[in-house]
């Protein structure tokens, strides 16, 4: 079966600034694919090309089998897109917004109205359905925007930072919606800066930096790239930090990181639980008091740091200027 989304060598330049520098993607039908990266990495540009808002300078892409440039019209009938900020009309009510989108997908009057009501209910907006969107909270607007993307029940869905600015409850309910859609066969491409989100939702994660995919795989595969597990210890006394660090040298498989403020030591290890046991033994011998000890897989933050040399949260330096150039 051909992939629902396929991109080959996408390049997009704004003047001298290269926003996309040859992006390749292949998203199998019925899966969630996450583009993970800092601001300015090229995530939104990629989504804009795939949703026909921008034309690539080079490369080609198909969505649901249609070329993003040559068959843009037919492609648009098969996708739904929800952007970084809610693209909803302030003066219209929630119901009117969704009915308008339905009409523009050419669903017809009755079907548009019916679909609007279904989606308002699904996104817990029934009570606010007939109020102008101007009075909605930020979270309500985002939900309405997402509902707009689902009006035509599209087989391929693009969500550009869908949970940025949502409270934890709203975020969790959005994750449920995505899981439900994928269970029903929808293909979802989402962008996120939240590693937890990509880990939680996506089968495949592409780490994007400076307009290039720098790593691709499942969350577990990416974690594998940064080596084994981590032993994480929280100490009781600040004066123990240096002692503990020296004492743990025999079990560390890499560089131990110590956070003086939280008294937390992170030690890469290669022998799993055995390493945890010996670490605790070594510290007991030095009479270091340990408040908390865990063995865990590396986080995607650590993956990102290893792959790019900077944290996911901080924008890549050269990409920063691009944001202001348009």
């Amino acid at each position: 079966m051909s992939p629902a989304i396929l991109a080959e060598g996408l390049v997009k330049k704004y003047g001298d600034v290269v926003a996309l520098d040859g992006v390749d993607l292949a998203v199998p039908e019925g899966t969630v694919f996450a583009l993970l990266g800092p601001n300015g990495a090229g995530k939104t540009t990629t989504v804009r090309i795939l949703t026909t808002l921008l034309r690539p300078d080079a490369g080609r892409a198909t969505v649901a089998g249609f070329d993003v440039v040559a068959e843009a019209d037919r492609l648009r009938a098969r996708i739904g897109a929800s952007g970084q900020y809610a693209a909803v009309d302030d003066h219209l009510t929630g119901a009117e917004n969704l009915e308008m989108v339905g009409r523009l997908y050419h669903l017809g009057v009755r079907r548009s109205k019916q679909r609007a009501r279904e989606l308002l209910e699904r996104f817990d907006l029934t009570e606010a359905a007939d109020r102008p969107v101007r009075g909605y909270s930020g979270g309500m607007r985002r939900r309405l925007d997402l509902a707009g993307a689902l009006v035509a029940d599209p087989p391929v869905l693009f969500l550009d930072e869908p949970t940025t600015g949502l409270d934890p409850r709203a975020r969790a309910s959005l994750w449920d919606v995505v899981a439900e859609l994928v269970a029903g066969g929808t293909t979802v491409l989402l962008t996120t800066q939240y590693l937890e989100e990509a880990d939680r939702l996506a089968q495949t994660i592409a780490v994007v930096d400076h307009g290039r995919v720098i790593a691709l795989g499942t969350a577990d595969e990416l974690k594998g790239q940064v080596g084994g597990d981590r032993v994480e210890l929280t100490l009781s006394r600040p004066e123990d930090v240096d002692v503990a660090r020296r004492a743990l040298a025999p079990v560390a498989a890499g560089e131990t990181r110590a956070d003086a403020a939280t008294l937390r030591l992170t030690i890469p290890v290669s022998t799993g639980t055995a390493a945890l046991t010996s670490a605790l033994g070594l510290l007991a011998a030095e009479r270091v008091a340990v408040r908390d000890a865990v063995l865990r897989r590396p986080t995607l933050d650590e993956v990102f740091l290893t792959l790019t040399g900077h944290q996911a949260g901080e924008p890549a330096k050269s990409a920063k200027s691009k944001e202001y150039s348009r």
Binding site: A81, A87, Y105
Partner: peptide, 11 residues
């Protein structure tokens, strides 16, 4: 406000 982005992804 990005409303054109929405419109332009519609058929």
């Amino acid at each position: 406000k990005g409303i054109f982005d929405r419109f332009r992804t519609l058929p």
